[in-house]
Design a binder for these strands. Structure first.
Length: 260
DNA sequence: ATGCCGGGCGAAGCCCGA
């Protein structure tokens, strides 16, 4: 089972590229972030024609996450517990099936948090605590699950081209990394780094200042796997070529492959 | 680079992203 995550920076603006890539690569599950549309405006019919079921947690203008999967999608849940006032559409989870073996998959868009310090950073850290609680709840089931998406966290020095540019940034601040590490330390595996301990690879390049031609990138799109999912992990890939397309998203797809 | 690009909204210019 191949599971993709892709922050598409508006599904309306980048639908053509996304659908072309899905037709060629045929991933089994696709987690989308920043769809930037309300649920009724998501192009579900077009994805269904391509063989996918869809579960969407949309929002006007900002955020928005979705799950596509070949076969059925069950137990769809949206949002994270712990803040009744939170109206930002950043989390959707569901059960998907590969050869009959169920996997719980979540598509998440973790808050950026800049400027830090400030209310946006407080929201980011609080959101990470809520995500940790969700991970703890899922771990108690002792089943395979994958929490994947745009984490907006640079885990280590090796995950950025220009560390000096990020010293005071919410994506790199010690508290952000510590919160990410806390979730990993529950017993989750960050798939790409686990399989490629020494590889320098990025998943985001800013649109500005020639970041892409200079390869001035960061790695912030991740997949965290429960032990039962990590046991099935056989590959992790970053599709960096997607960034070179005409009119691309600023993020590229990150893929993991599990034994069916 | 407290935004250089790019998207949304909405029809100019501001908000937001990382």
């Amino acid at each position: 089972m191949r599971i993709w995550t892709w922050n598409v920076n508006s599904i309306k603006a980048h639908f053509e590229q996304v659908s072309e890539w899905l037709k060629v690569e045929k991933p089994d599950v696709v987690c989308l972030q920043e769809i930037k549309c309300e649920t009724p405006n998501f192009p579900a019919a077009a994805f269904e024609e391509m063989g996918y079921s869809c579960a969407v947690h949309g929002q006007k203008t900002y955020n928005g996450v979705a799950l596509l999967a070949r076969g059925k999608i069950e137990n769809v849940a949206t949002g994270l517990a712990g803040d009744e006032a939170d109206e930002q559409a950043r989390f959707i989870s569901a059960t998907v099936f590969g050869n009959g073996r169920p996997v719980t998959v979540a598509s998440l868009y973790l808050p950026n948090g800049n400027p830090a310090p400030g209310p946006k950073y407080d929201y980011k850290l609080a959101w990470m605590k809520r995500l940790k609680a969700k991970a703890q709840e899922l771990l108690a089931t002792e089943e395979a699950f994958v929490l994947t998406g745009d984490y907006n966290v640079i885990p280590a020095l090796a995950d950025m081209k220009r560390p000096e540019a990020w010293v005071n940034d919410a994506l790199w601040l010690a508290q952000s990394r510590a919160a990410f590490q806390e979730i990993e330390n529950l017993g989750l595996t960050e798939a790409f780094r686990a399989l490629h301990p020494n590889e320098v690879a990025y998943s985001f390049w800013d649109y500005q200042a020639g970041a892409w031609p200079k390869n001035n990138g960061i790695r912030i799109d991740h997949a965290l796997l429960s032990p039962q999912a990590a046991d099935r992990l056989i590959a992790a890939r970053i599709h960096r070529d997607a960034r070179g397309h005409e009119k691309p998203s600023d993020h590229v797809p990150v893929e993991i492959e599990l034994v069916d």
